[in-house]
Simulated assay, not measured.
Amino acid sequence: MEDYELLVYLQKKRDELARTLIESKKRGIAFADAERDYKREKAKFIAQKRMENMPVTLIRDLAQGDVYISELRHARDVAKVLYQNAAEAINVYKLECRLVEAQIKREWHA
């Protein structure tokens, strides 16, 4: 690649990195919201079962098997994966930028 093409490519990667940072923030907030919702509803479920004198040893298993609680847990897990994916994409874009910057530096010093 020529210097100009490398600079254009580098700028494209920096733009992608900036967009991914914004997306990562959104996904991080969504993950935190999903985590909060899951824990809040699980706590309500546990409190309700304790008030019903359900044996404590059974409550956790029942909470995990409850359709609503398990859906919230699934939503939380999906949000976590999406957040982790965005974080990994950030690392990939940063690496690509470093590689292109190194290539530009080599070509300018050659």
Rank of each mutant, 00 (worst) to 15 (best):
M1I: 06
M1F: 05
Y4P: 02
E5F: 15
L6C: 09
V8G: 04
Y9V: 12
K13F: 03
K13W: 02
K13L: 08
R14N: 09
L17Q: 04
R19V: 00
L21G: 13
L21R: 14
L21V: 11
L21N: 10
I22E: 02
K25V: 01
K25H: 05
K26H: 12
G28T: 01
G28C: 06
G28V: 02
G28Q: 07
I29H: 06
F31I: 06
F31E: 11
D33V: 11
E35R: 03
D37H: 04
D37N: 04
Y38N: 09
R40L: 00
K42Y: 08
K44I: 01
K44V: 08
F45N: 01
F45I: 03
A47P: 08
Q48T: 12
Q48S: 13
R50K: 12
R50D: 13
N53L: 08
M54Q: 02
M54F: 07
P55V: 06
P55A: 06
I59K: 14
R60A: 13
R60F: 13
D61W: 10
G65C: 07
G65L: 11
Y68F: 08
I69W: 07
I69M: 03
I69G: 03
I69Q: 02
E71R: 14
E71H: 10
L72E: 00
R73I: 02
R73W: 05
R76F: 09
D77I: 00
V78Q: 10
A79H: 04
K80F: 12
L82P: 04
Q84H: 05
N85Q: 00
N85R: 00
N85E: 04
E88W: 15
E88Q: 15
V92T: 02
Y93T: 00
Y93C: 01
L95S: 11
R98G: 00
V100N: 01
E101G: 00
Q103L: 15
E107S: 14
E107Q: 12
H109F: 15
H109E: 15
H109Q: 14
H109C: 14
A110W: 08
